[in-house]
């Protein structure tokens, strides 16, 4: 199975939540902590497994991210 991971630039992110809403694997959540601008940035949940499985580098999160804060990698 294809595997991947994403890197989120937490200072660029404005916490809009659009990436969270499109990720088919439920791999992204909004952080408790604030970034320098005062937004709750999105964070990638790499290690926690749930039944939807791992990130498959589908790029949907990056396609919708308005702030171009996400880079996607395939392993």
């Amino acid at each position: 199975m294809k595997k991947g991971f994403i890197k989120i630039d937490s200072q660029r992110c404005k916490g809009c939540g659009l990436c969270v809403s499109v990720c088919p694997k439920g791999r992204i959540r909004i952080a408790e902590a604030l970034n320098l601008k005062g937004y709750h940035p999105a964070e990638f949940q790499e290690d926690e497994m749930d039944k939807k499985g791992r990130c498959n580098a589908c790029t949907l999160c990056a396609l919708i991210c308005p702030d171009v804060a996400i880079e996607v990698f395939r392993e």
Binding site: T59, P66, E71, F73, R74
Partner: peptide, 25 residues
């Protein structure tokens, strides 16, 4: 790991002034 999505070159490095979730970005 191979990068499959990255920032386009014709987009400067500046952070957008647009609101969170704005379609302009």
């Amino acid at each position: 790991a191979q990068q499959v999505f990255k920032r386009p070159e014709s987009l400067k490095d500046n952070v957008f002034h647009y609101c969170p979730g704005c379609g302009h970005s």
